[in-house]
Amino acid sequence: MTKITLGKGINAGLRAAMEADPKVVVMGEDIGKLGGVFRVTEGLQKDFGEDRVIDTPLAESGIIGTAVGLALRGYRPVCEIQFDGFVFPAYDQIINQVAKMHYRSMGKIKMPVVIRIPYGGGIGAVEHHSESPEALFAHVNGLKVVTCGDPVDAYWMIQQAIASDDPVVFFEPKRRYHEKAELDESVPPALPLHQAKVVREGADATLLCYGPMVKTCVQAAEAAVEDGRNLEVVDLRTISPFDLPTIFASVKKTGRAVVVHEATLSFGPGSEIAARVSEECFYHLEAPVLRVTGFDTPYPPSRMEEEYLPDLDRVLDGVDRVMGY
């Protein structure tokens, strides 16, 4: 057993994947000597060399475009985008090239590319450093989108993403990089990559969340006990595809669901979940599916981010409302 943080979990997972497969290469801005601005790749260049841990020129389209070429040549590139807001120069390569290659080639070409993106707010950053663009990727067919909510998942999910022959956009909750947990590397991962996890069992309502909001929702569920409420918390882990069976099973049990994410309300992941749940669980629902999310504005200046981001109180307010029907 070792105590790790979420950031160190990804670091250890990358290391394990690189040790297991010499075709795994890691690339991005400032990931070598510096170890990335969040130190997630710390020490990797020292141990695996500059050919496998590549400090790229400052050009995101270049990172993803050359990763496509490396993948065509049999490599498994793991690309780091420094911050969520800086993925967009690479958006064309991701949407038009990475996502569609398998489809266009009728399955002859595989794109085992992982795109790691630290995402979400809550760190007091300047603009473009706190975005939650997961829906912009989940909406694209051909991409898989996942996000880890705890250090143990971070360790295993990054390895599972690298092992995937489909391209995976791997969102890392940056404000949770320092969360700690015990990891036993000898125990195989409990779940496959595209499965959700019930992190707290409950009977009265289900909180559906992922990434940075998992901790918030667990705390909210604990606080709700005082109000006599027993909430179930599901860490979705996978956004595209959603693990619908786990979501449906939970909502059918509790009859009430609140989706929580930092991303903007409209056209967000919660919209898709609400639609699916209302189609599949209609006769089990005691209330409409509610959403507690970021507002439909650009991410605000950091002095307001605590108001913008769903927090314990806003989640509990959502619970009050969903219980009020």
């Binding site: 309300l265 507002f295 439909d296 650009p298 002095r303 307001m304 108001e307």
Partner: peptide, 30 residues
């Protein structure tokens, strides 16, 4: 310190009805 409710108005030239509603809901909540 800025007020979050002041920032809804600047997303578009004219605030959309949906945004106005969100802003009002948030103001009531706060």
């Amino acid at each position: 310190d800025p007020q979050l409710t002041d920032f809804f108005q600047h997303v578009y030239v004219e605030e959309t009805p949906q945004l106005a509603e969100q802003r009002a809901q948030y103001a009531a909540y706060a």
